[in-house]
Amino acid sequence: MSILSIVSLRKSFVSPEGPRHIIVDIPEFSLSAGQQVALRGESGSGKTTFLNLIAGILAPDSGGILIDGRNMAALSEPARDRLRATSLGYIFQTFNLLQGFTVLENVELGMAFGPSGIDRARASSLLAHVGLSTKLHHRPRQLSTGQQQRVAVARALANKPRLVLADEPTGNLDRKHACEAISLISDTCREAGAALLLVSHDEEVLAQFEETRDFAAINRCLSAAGGAS
């Protein structure tokens, strides 16, 4: 059963020079429940836009994005916010932790907008699972980059999402920590039963996944241009 199903998805932006450019043109893409896929793509190829469309942060020009049977593309913005809060986890390259909040509060905020609200015990348990049980009340800036990424992973899984999106999650990590982070993300998603869609341009990261695809192969505007833009 598909947890994510994309049909005829198009997104364009008006460039500063004036003309409108199509960034994403994906006829079809799907992800089964629990499936883990790594998308290979160069910087500037529209991978982040693609993930933001799936997350409902951006609205598409046309097409459908079915998440767990609900069409994200057809929902109002508040409904997209709610679907994102209930069904999706998002791990960013820059972690995007809130610096004014503690590690524990960052994870709690990942639950705050979902259906069940904040569950401190679960937040603590998730942080213990990623090896941060002694850092609950630290501020993000007091952690190493690898530890910050772990917080981001815990936060992404805080709401028991069906699908986790990871955008260049190792972009700010060194090689050793990058491999550890991918293993952590992959293992944690698998244990939580969440599907994982990860985008990266790092071949060593991509090599850790059984299933990889070229973003250029699924994004028609890139394949028409002959590869990454």
Binding site: E77, A85, Y90, N96
Partner: peptide, 16 residues
Amino acid sequence: RRDIAILRSLGARRRM
């Protein structure tokens, strides 16, 4: 702005 964007990405609505 970044904090607001992060909260929105976690599901916070505009009115919130």
